[in-house]
Protein backbone atom coordinates (compact mmCIF):
# COMPACT_ATOMS: atom_id res chain seq x y z
CA UNK A 1 0.00 0.00 0.00
CA UNK A 2 1.11 3.53 -0.59
CA UNK A 3 0.94 6.66 1.46
CA UNK A 4 1.46 9.56 -0.89
CA UNK A 5 4.60 8.63 -2.77
CA UNK A 6 5.93 6.36 -0.03
CA UNK A 7 5.55 2.64 0.00
CA UNK A 8 4.72 1.02 3.29
CA UNK A 9 8.20 -0.52 3.19
CA UNK A 10 9.79 2.89 2.89
CA UNK A 11 7.87 4.19 5.90
CA UNK A 12 8.88 1.20 7.97
CA UNK A 13 12.49 1.67 6.92
CA UNK A 14 12.31 5.29 7.97
CA UNK A 15 10.87 4.30 11.31
CA UNK A 16 13.66 1.80 11.80
CA UNK A 17 16.33 4.25 10.86
CA UNK A 18 15.11 6.85 13.32
CA UNK A 19 13.93 4.37 15.95
CA UNK A 20 10.41 5.58 15.83
CA UNK A 21 7.92 3.19 17.38
CA UNK A 22 4.73 5.08 16.58
CA UNK A 23 4.09 7.03 13.42
CA UNK A 24 0.92 8.92 12.60
CA UNK A 25 0.64 10.71 9.27
CA UNK A 26 -2.15 12.67 7.71
CA UNK A 27 -2.57 14.21 4.28
CA UNK A 28 -5.69 15.11 2.35
CA UNK A 29 -7.59 11.97 1.55
CA UNK A 30 -5.39 9.64 3.59
CA UNK A 31 -4.35 8.96 7.15
CA UNK A 32 -2.10 6.22 8.50
CA UNK A 33 -0.98 5.10 11.92
CA UNK A 34 1.77 2.57 12.45
CA UNK A 35 2.58 1.16 15.87
CA UNK A 36 5.53 -1.12 16.34
CA UNK A 37 5.41 -3.49 19.26
CA UNK A 38 8.27 -3.60 21.74
CA UNK A 39 9.75 -6.81 20.35
CA UNK A 40 10.10 -5.33 16.89
CA UNK A 41 11.63 -2.15 18.26
CA UNK A 42 14.00 -4.28 20.25
CA UNK A 43 15.00 -6.21 17.18
CA UNK A 44 15.92 -3.18 15.20
CA UNK A 45 17.43 -1.22 18.05
CA UNK A 46 21.00 -0.13 17.65
CA UNK A 47 23.11 2.10 19.86
CA UNK A 48 22.62 5.65 18.80
CA UNK A 49 23.90 9.07 19.78
CA UNK A 50 21.83 11.41 21.90
CA UNK A 51 20.16 14.04 19.76
CA UNK A 52 22.08 17.30 19.78
CA UNK A 53 20.33 20.37 21.07
CA UNK A 54 18.13 21.86 18.41
CA UNK A 55 17.74 18.62 16.54
CA UNK A 56 14.42 16.91 16.47
CA UNK A 57 14.31 14.38 19.24
CA UNK A 58 13.87 10.85 18.15
CA UNK A 59 12.14 8.29 20.29
CA UNK A 60 14.74 6.12 21.89
CA UNK A 61 14.34 2.37 21.96
CA UNK A 62 13.07 1.00 25.21
CA UNK A 63 15.52 -0.67 27.51
CA UNK A 64 15.27 -4.36 26.51
CA UNK A 65 15.68 -5.43 30.12
CA UNK A 66 12.47 -3.85 31.33
CA UNK A 67 10.31 -4.94 28.41
CA UNK A 68 8.00 -7.92 28.71
CA UNK A 69 9.05 -10.61 26.31
CA UNK A 70 6.38 -11.01 23.78
CA UNK A 71 6.95 -12.47 20.45
CA UNK A 72 3.85 -11.67 18.50
CA UNK A 73 3.86 -13.03 14.99
CA UNK A 74 2.57 -9.71 13.69
CA UNK A 75 4.80 -7.05 15.24
CA UNK A 76 3.07 -4.29 13.36
CA UNK A 77 -0.39 -2.96 13.91
CA UNK A 78 -1.41 -0.84 11.03
CA UNK A 79 -4.47 1.27 11.44
CA UNK A 80 -5.55 2.59 8.07
CA UNK A 81 -7.89 5.36 7.28
CA UNK A 82 -10.33 5.62 10.15
CA UNK A 83 -13.26 7.01 8.29
CA UNK A 84 -15.45 5.75 5.49
CA UNK A 85 -14.58 7.74 2.38
CA UNK A 86 -17.20 8.78 -0.12
CA UNK A 87 -15.50 8.95 -3.49
CA UNK A 88 -16.73 10.69 -6.60
CA UNK A 89 -18.03 8.07 -9.08
CA UNK A 90 -17.81 10.51 -11.97
CA UNK A 91 -16.19 13.74 -13.06
CA UNK A 92 -17.98 17.07 -12.66
CA UNK A 93 -18.60 20.14 -10.56
CA UNK A 94 -19.33 19.59 -6.89
CA UNK A 95 -22.25 21.38 -5.28
CA UNK A 96 -23.26 21.15 -1.66
CA UNK A 97 -26.81 22.32 -2.20
CA UNK A 98 -29.56 21.42 -4.66
CA UNK A 99 -29.72 25.00 -5.97
CA UNK A 100 -27.51 28.11 -5.74
CA UNK A 101 -29.57 29.76 -3.01
CA UNK A 102 -30.76 26.62 -1.24
CA UNK A 103 -29.25 25.32 1.97
CA UNK A 104 -26.65 22.53 1.73
CA UNK A 105 -27.73 18.90 1.88
CA UNK A 106 -25.52 18.19 4.87
CA UNK A 107 -23.13 19.83 7.30
CA UNK A 108 -20.30 18.44 9.41
CA UNK A 109 -21.73 16.58 12.37
CA UNK A 110 -24.98 15.63 10.63
CA UNK A 111 -26.22 12.11 10.99
CA UNK A 112 -26.90 10.37 7.70
CA UNK A 113 -28.39 7.03 6.76
CA UNK A 114 -28.16 4.81 3.71
CA UNK A 115 -29.67 6.50 0.68
CA UNK A 116 -29.44 10.09 1.93
CA UNK A 117 -28.28 12.62 -0.65
CA UNK A 118 -25.00 14.25 0.29
CA UNK A 119 -24.28 16.48 -2.66
CA UNK A 120 -24.68 17.03 -6.36
CA UNK A 121 -22.09 16.51 -9.04
CA UNK A 122 -22.99 18.33 -12.18
CA UNK A 123 -21.76 16.51 -15.26
CA UNK A 124 -22.52 17.71 -18.77
CA UNK A 125 -25.28 19.96 -17.46
CA UNK A 126 -26.92 17.03 -15.68
CA UNK A 127 -27.33 17.09 -11.94
CA UNK A 128 -26.30 13.78 -10.39
CA UNK A 129 -27.28 13.24 -6.78
CA UNK A 130 -24.67 11.36 -4.79
CA UNK A 131 -26.16 9.10 -2.16
CA UNK A 132 -24.45 7.49 0.79
CA UNK A 133 -24.05 3.73 1.16
CA UNK A 134 -23.57 3.58 4.91
CA UNK A 135 -25.02 5.07 8.11
CA UNK A 136 -22.90 7.53 10.00
CA UNK A 137 -21.92 11.03 10.98
CA UNK A 138 -20.30 13.51 8.61
CA UNK A 139 -16.83 14.19 9.92
CA UNK A 140 -15.24 16.06 7.06
CA UNK A 141 -16.28 17.76 3.83
CA UNK A 142 -13.22 17.47 1.61
CA UNK A 143 -14.18 19.54 -1.40
CA UNK A 144 -15.01 23.21 -1.84
CA UNK A 145 -18.40 24.12 -3.21
CA UNK A 146 -18.31 24.70 -6.98
CA UNK A 147 -14.97 23.02 -7.60
CA UNK A 148 -14.15 20.32 -10.10
CA UNK A 149 -14.03 16.79 -8.76
CA UNK A 150 -12.27 13.96 -10.53
CA UNK A 151 -13.02 10.26 -10.63
CA UNK A 152 -12.23 8.67 -7.27
CA UNK A 153 -11.71 11.95 -5.43
CA UNK A 154 -12.64 11.81 -1.76
CA UNK A 155 -15.68 14.00 -1.15
CA UNK A 156 -16.65 13.23 2.41
CA UNK A 157 -15.36 11.35 5.40
CA UNK A 158 -18.02 9.59 7.42
CA UNK A 159 -17.70 8.03 10.82
CA UNK A 160 -19.70 4.87 10.41
CA UNK A 161 -22.34 4.03 12.97
CA UNK A 162 -24.49 0.95 13.35
CA UNK A 163 -27.94 1.17 11.77
CA UNK A 164 -29.85 1.47 15.01
CA UNK A 165 -27.70 4.11 16.74
Amino acid sequence: MKFGKFDLDELLALMDRHHVSELSLRRHGQAIEIKKSASAAQHSAAPQPRPAAGEKSVAEPDDPETQPTLLSPEPLEIIGEKFYQVQAPLVGTFYRAPAPDASPFIEVGDQVKVGDTLCIIEAMKNMNEIQIDVNGIIREICVKNGSLVEFGQVLFKIEETSPDS
Binding site: L90, M124, K125
Partner: peptide
Amino acid sequence: ESYLFYQNILSAALSS
Protein backbone atom coordinates in the same frame (compact mmCIF):
# COMPACT_ATOMS: atom_id res chain seq x y z
CA GLU B 1 -14.12 3.31 -18.44
CA SER B 2 -11.66 6.16 -18.91
CA TYR B 3 -10.25 7.29 -22.27
CA LEU B 4 -13.36 6.10 -24.09
CA PHE B 5 -15.78 7.16 -21.37
CA TYR B 6 -16.70 10.37 -23.09
CA GLN B 7 -19.08 11.42 -20.32
CA ASN B 8 -16.23 12.05 -17.86
CA ILE B 9 -14.08 13.64 -20.53
CA LEU B 10 -16.75 16.13 -21.58
CA SER B 11 -17.61 16.78 -17.97
CA ALA B 12 -13.96 17.43 -17.13
CA ALA B 13 -13.76 19.90 -20.02
CA LEU B 14 -16.87 21.76 -18.89
CA SER B 15 -15.97 21.81 -15.21
CA SER B 16 -12.45 23.04 -15.90
